[in-house]
Every structure is written in structure tokens, then in C-alpha cells.
Design a protein around this nucleic acid. Structure first.
Lengths: 114, 114
DNA sequence: CTACAACTTCGAGCGCACTCTAAGTCAAGC
DNA sequence: GCTTGACTTAGAGTGCGCTCGAAGTTGTAG
């Protein structure tokens, strides 16, 4: 898979994918015979997971912490699990906050009448 | 109410409040005898509402559109209602997305075992 | 053979939302 | 009278997450 294919399938741009690699969010990509980046399905899965973290508002520096643990491999599962569990709690709270805001919006919208 | 009081009660800083005034998110504040900003409860309500819009991810430029309609007064209620209704739909979708991400996180967390 | 598109690296630039600094004014307490 | 601390202005600086541009190389279609 070329970088443009990965871009299409993830919704990112090739520029953004290279940026992610540069800052360490993605491991250095394999290269084909002409020096172009060649990706496999595992990379796609990883980028999609990063997308979930991004959707839930995790800052890149935290994703980097997680990516480094992942790169370190065995022995870091406990810390990775703890990171995700902690993040999960933050996201769950944000859902609660957003639902409260939806109520406020509904009240305000209703206040404008028909 | 002085700017420091408004800051305390809204969780913003005095710097941020002045910034909001500068860009037009808040009307020019009344001044006391020594030229300091003096706020009333209505301003507090407005800032809190801005806080809800911010929590729900509305960009400042959209808040500005809303603030301008509000400042224009009567005759803009329809458009204000439409803006909020549109935003409400976006926020509701984000709640859906976040809940999906929570499922992904739960699956990942479970995958790490005990 | 020649376009042309897609890739490469490096580094600069951008939009957002603050955040802070500097220099000065003013009111209250010791 | 003097210090202290909160206020004032204008404008510069920060951190984040991209986003783009320039200049060069390579693979493919006509």
C-alpha cells in the first residue's frame, strides 16, 4: 500500500502521515524499490486506532507515550492498559458533559419559540 | 462585579475575558468610576452560555456569528434558533461518535487481559 | 522519448485560542 | 506619604496540530 492509498483509507493526507512518522507516532515505514513508503494492513489498523484516540481528544503527546510503550513491546501491557483505562474515564466524563450541554441547548432552542 | 470576580465565577482568566471583549464575543463592558470593568449577572449568564458552546466544540468564529445576531436584537431569533439547532445536531453526532470510541477502547482494554 | 503524476526531504507557514509582558493608573491600608 | 495589589492598554509570544511549498527523483501512459 502506498502512502496515497493509506491516506485515502484513513482520511488523512500524505503530508499528515509523513508528519506522524516524523514525530514518532508511526514507526519508520518500509520502503519499496524506489524508496517510496510501503504500508501493510497492520499499519492501517494502527492509524485507525490513532484516529479513535484523536476523535476522543487525546493530545498527540499522550498518543506518543502510548506509541512508545507499544514500540517497547512486551512488558508494557499493564501501563498501556492503565493509560487507556484512564483515558476512557476522561472520555466518559466528556460524554456526560456533552449531554448536559445538549440539555442546555434544547432549553435555549425551545426558548426561541416556533 | 469586577473582572477578577467574573474570572473566578466562570473559570476563565481576566486576560481571557478581555480577549473575548476585544474580539467581540462580549459587548464592551461598563466601567466604574476608576475606569475598571463592572459586570452584572446578565454578563455572567452570557459567559456561562459561551462556556457551554465552547465545551461542545463550537469555534469562536461561530460564537461570534451568534453574538452578532444577539447584539442585533429583535428579528434575529429565527436565525439564532437555527444556528443552535444545527449545532445541537453536530454535538449529538459527536456523542454518538464518542460512544463508539468508548466501545473500541473497552475492547482494547479487555484485550490486555488482567 | 516525452509528459506527467506521485513520490521524496526539509523546513517554513498557518489558524486557533489563548497567554503573557510591559508600562502605566488608581484605591486602600499602614 | 508610601507601598501593595488589582486594574488598564497595546501588542507580542506560545503550543498545538497540522499544512504547504520548493526542489528533486522515479514510475507509467501515450
Amino acid at each position: 500500500m502506498k502512502i496515497s492509498d493509506l491516506a485515502t483509507r484513513t482520511g488523512l493526507t500524505a503530508h499528515t502521515i509523513r508528519y506522524y512518522e516524523r514525530i514518532g507516532l508511526m514507526p519508520a515505514a518500509d520502503r519499496d524499490s524506489s524508496g517510496h513508503r510501503a504500508y501493510d494492513e497492520r499499519t492501517l489498523v494502527w492509524v485507525e486506532f490513532l484516529g479513535h484516540l484523536k476523535t476522543t481528544g487525546m493530545p498527540i503527546r499522550d498518543m506518543l507515550d502510548y506509541a512508545r510503550l507499544r514500540a517497547a513491546g512486551a512488558g508494557t501491557e499493564g501501563r498501556r492498559k492503565a493509560m487507556l483505562a484512564q483515558h476512557r474515564a476522561v472520555v466518559a466524563q466528556r460524554v456526560v458533559d456533552l449531554n448536559e450541554c445538549l440539555d442546555v441547548l434544547d432549553a435555549k432552542i425551545a426558548g426561541y419559540g416556533d
